[in-house]
Each structure stands twice: as structure tokens, then as C-alpha cells.
Design a protein around this nucleic acid. Structure first.
Lengths: 185, 185
DNA sequence: CCATAAGCAGACAGACTTGTCTGTAAAGTG
DNA sequence: CACTTTACAGACAAGTCTGTCTGCTTATGG
């Protein structure tokens, strides 16, 4: 097995734990234990737990930006782009370790004092909104109408993510996916 | 000012605090202090903090059931029923103390061991879904199609709630409200 | 008047939390 | 070899949390 440096190990371990049990449900001690590192090493790389959370959110955002870029450059018809998003979400759900949108979950336990965290959530959500607007603009000539439809896709995606988690079932993603395709035709 | 018994005072105080800062962000000590009661009194009425949370969720669900019933019995056209839901949500947002869906927020910090809490969240969400399906069935003759549209209303409502909180702005509610009315015409 | 119930006050236990600190060991570099 | 960087090990502080406990006060109903 590979053995990257301590910082990467911490970030990777924290990412898995935060994703599965939420930011507030995981302590530093568990992270460093599972990452096989020492507390002093942790605080050498991250000044606080909050900054680790910010690094995690930033990391996820970077990955999702790459994925969004690839999808937009794929040349697929816009309906299939949107469908791919919901299929991907459904696959996550079927994999079993899905716990809802990590950004929303983190926001639910962050007060207004956590400026960095709140800002990263906003940046990611706004960027996802733009992504769906771009998809909509490929299918809808009217610029204003495309923006509105893009926002609706975004809200359907968010609602499907939230309620699939709350109800622990798949239908919200399927229904939202169908609605998204309909909105684009 | 009235002075109801300790149990009601605790439930009311906890409701406000849970709503504003989340279940995990509020401790027993703060609740009893703000409610003007003693810890022993608290544990005489509630065996645990978790059971207080369940009572809170149940209380909110009962109120929302009443409201849903009133709206369905109002005789308004279905488009206006749906619009009223989103207007109500917008009013909450403008009031300033909105912190997102309390059920989703509580679910984000409850692990699978909290059976009672998870179940209450599911019951409420499923009941809200039924509510929107009933609205849809008033506007759409085809039964299957009405169910699908009802589910879409539900997902739009959920997405609007979540993203209005994440982005701290009003447009998700407005966009979702418009989309809901369009879906019903 | 008195007994029972309800509530208040707050110490306390035990288990967590984040973050600091001291000290040691290993590995790469001039 | 010497030096610096990096990481490991873990005690410790200071605070949080839930939940239990003892004792005191007040109110109500027979």
C-alpha cells in the first residue's frame, strides 16, 4: 500500500469520515488515529479543525468542477448531460454510503461565525447553479428562459439529494431526473 | 405573562433554540436555563435529550398537518395553494430567523441509531409529499401524472428550502414557486 | 392542617471535545 | 558527520456535553 505524507493521509481520512458521519460527528482524535498520524503532526498542517473542514470542502469542490467541465465538454446532448448527473447521484445512493449533500450537511451545523465554511458552501452551490444554467442554455435558445430552467434543474437536483437521504430511497432522484429531461425538451 | 408548566416551557424554549441553531448545537443546560427550569425537572418530563427532540419534531409535524389540512380545505385553486406554500416560505426567510428545514438539519446530525428521530423525519417528509400530491390531483385529471407532478412540487419545495438557506437568498423560493405554478397549469 | 406532588437549585460523575506542550525518532541534505 | 525537516507518541489543560443525585421550597387537594 502507498504511504503518502501525513497531510494527504489526514485529508483523505477526514474526507471519508466527514462524508459518512458529518463534520460535527467526527473528532480530531478519531481522524488522526485512523490516518495513523499524531496530533502534533495534525496541528502542523492544519491550524484548526475548521481549517481542515475548509480544505475538505475545497478539495471536493475542485473535483466536482473538473467533473462538470468534462461533462460540458463531452458533446452530449443537454438532456443526456442532465440525465448523467442524476444517474451519477443514483449510483452514489446505490453504493450505500451516501449521507446527503456534504455541503448542506456541513452548513446545517455551522453557525454564522464560520465564515470560511459558509463561503465555500456558497461558492460550490453557486457554481453548481451555473453548471446547470450552462446545460440549459444548450437546449434553450432564449437566454432568460434558459437561466430560469437552469435554476429549476439546480433546485430539483438539490431537492432530490436532500429527500433521497431523508427518506432513504431512490425515487426522488428518478423523479427529478425525469423532470430535468422534460424541462430540457 | 403566562406561566405554563415546566414541560411546556421546556418544549417551547427547546423548539426555538433547535430551530435557530440546530439540535446538536444546543445543550440541555442552555435549554433549562432559558426555560427557567431545573435539570431535575427536565429529566422528570423527558428521559433524554433525544426524546425531547422527538417531541419537538412531533409538535412541528402536528402543526404543519393542521396547516396543510386548512389549505386543502380552503377551496382555493390548486395553483394558489401551491403559491401560498412558497409565499409562506418566503415570509419565513424574510423574517430572518430561518435556518433551513429543521427536519433535514436534524437528520444531518443523527446517525442511524436514532431510530425515533429518523422515523419522525420520514413520516413528516412522506406526509408533505402526500400533501403536494393532493394539490396536484386537484389540477391534473390523470391520476398517475398528478402523482408525478406532486412529487416534483415536493422536490422543488425541498430544494428551494435547502438552497435558500445555503445561499442565504430568496431567489430559490421565487423560482421554485413559479415552477410549481407552471407545473399545475 | 397535613400529605403528596411538583418544581427549583446545583453539585457531581464520566465521557467526550479541541488544542498545546514536551520529547523522541527517522530521514534527507550539505 | 551535522543539521534541519518531518513525523510519531502521548500527557495535559480547559472546556464541553448528558445524565444522576441530594436537598430544599412551594403549591394543592382532602
Amino acid at each position: 500500500m502507498r504511504k503518502p505524507n501525513a497531510k494527504d493521509r489526514i485529508l483523505e481520512t477526514a474526507g471519508e469520515l466527514f462524508f459518512q458521519r458529518g463534520y460535527s460527528g467526527v473528532g480530531i482524535n478519531e481522524i488522526i488515529e485512523k490516518a495513523g498520524t499524531a496530533k502534533a503532526s495534525f496541528y502542523q498542517h492544519f491550524p484548526s479543525k475548521e481549517s481542515l473542514c475548509e480544505a475538505w470542502l475545497q478539495d471536493m469542490h475542485d473535483r466536482s468542477s473538473v467533473h462538470h467541465g468534462e461533462l460540458l465538454a463531452s458533446g452530449l446532448p443537454p438532456q443526456e448531460m442532465a440525465a448523467a448527473c442524476f444517474t451519477r447521484l443514483a449510483d452514489f445512493l446505490k453504493a450505500g454510503d451516501f449521507r446527503g449533500c456534504p455541503y448542506s450537511n456541513t452548513g446545517a451545523v455551522s453557525d454564522e461565525n464560520c465564515f470560511g465554511i459558509v463561503k465555500l458552501i456558497r461558492v460550490h452551490k453557486e457554481s453548481t447553479r451555473i453548471f446547470f444554467r450552462k446545460i440549459a442554455s444548450l437546449a434553450i435558445p432564449d437566454e432568460g428562459r434558459a437561466a430560469t430552467i437552469g435554476d429549476r434543474l439546480f433546485l430539483l437536483y438539490s431537492g432530490a439529494t436532500a429527500e433521497a437521504q431523508n427518506l432513504k430511497c431512490l425515487w426522488p432522484v428518478e423523479i427529478a431526473g425525469e423532470a430535468a429531461v422534460e424541462l430540457l425538451t
